[in-house]
């Protein structure tokens, strides 16, 4: 079982969160899996960690369509944070809009973090593949 220190799930849909958590429980050894209802809550938490020299999550599951701050707005703020380590960001969405794919391409090039893209529904095999520290 892969060992991961900290994982963030940013999604406003409780069922998806349930699904991801359930899969993660069976494939990784992680004590700290945190959930956020939107981008704003997540980015605030990360900023807080940075200030307190806490542990930055190694993997972030990121939904796109969320209230207040959506996935891409979160991404914009996140890549500008002074984080040296490579974080794996898995964009998980039900969107098939080309605009979203373009955004993904765009951010992939703009940052040193690993940005992956997967469509819902989440599958165990897929999650397994993308759930390892960068």
């Amino acid at each position: 079982m892969t060992k991961v220190n900290s994982i963030f799930i940013v999604d406003d849909d409780p069922i998806t969160v349930f699904g991801i958590r359930k899969i993660l429980n069976s494939i990784v050894d992680c004590n700290q899996i945190e959930t956020f209802g939107n981008g704003k809550l997540a980015i605030d938490a990360i900023k807080n960690i940075l200030e307190n020299n806490g542990e930055i999550p190694e993997i972030i599951f990121l939904d796109i369509n969320m209230p207040i701050m959506d996935g891409w707005q979160f991404m914009e703020e996140f890549i500008n944070l002074p984080i040296e380590m490579r974080v794996r960001i898995n964009v998980i969405t039900s969107s098939i809009a080309t605009a979203d794919l373009d955004n993904w391409e765009n951010y992939r090039k703009k940052t040193h973090h690993i940005v992956d893209y997967a469509n819902k529904p989440v599958k165990r095999s897929e999650i397994t593949k993308i759930t390892k520290p960068a």
Binding site: T16, G19, S94, S95, N119, K120, P121, K123
Partner: peptide, 9 residues
């Protein structure tokens, strides 16, 4: 799609 995805999962 969101709902369908949830059902499927």
């Amino acid at each position: 799609r969101s709902h369908a995805a949830n059902f499927s999962m």
